[in-house]
Amino acid sequence: MKAKVYITPKAGILDPQGLTIERSLPALGFEGVSNVRVGKYIELELPDGEGAGESLERMCRKLLANPIIEDFEYELIEE
């Protein structure tokens, strides 16, 4: 089964990448954009079965995200 994992900086953590984008948008004529946060998007395929969600959750905690500075969400897509 396929999975999509979204990793974002935790709320309240300074995100310099997001800030930089936010600051450069007005120069290109895009006014009023706020709260830009830059994260990571990971696609993966994992074995089908009951424990897929749980396994993915652990994967995120252990490796894909760093819980000290990052939040994560994921979607499992049954084929």
Binding site: P9, I13, L14, P16, Q17, T20, N66, I68, I69
Partner: peptide
């Protein structure tokens, strides 16, 4: 830090 032997985490430098 990643191994948890020291507390905290590293982010990208402020100026990227």
């Amino acid at each position: 830090l990643e191994a948890g032997l020291l507390p905290g985490a590293m982010q990208q430098n402020e100026k990227l």
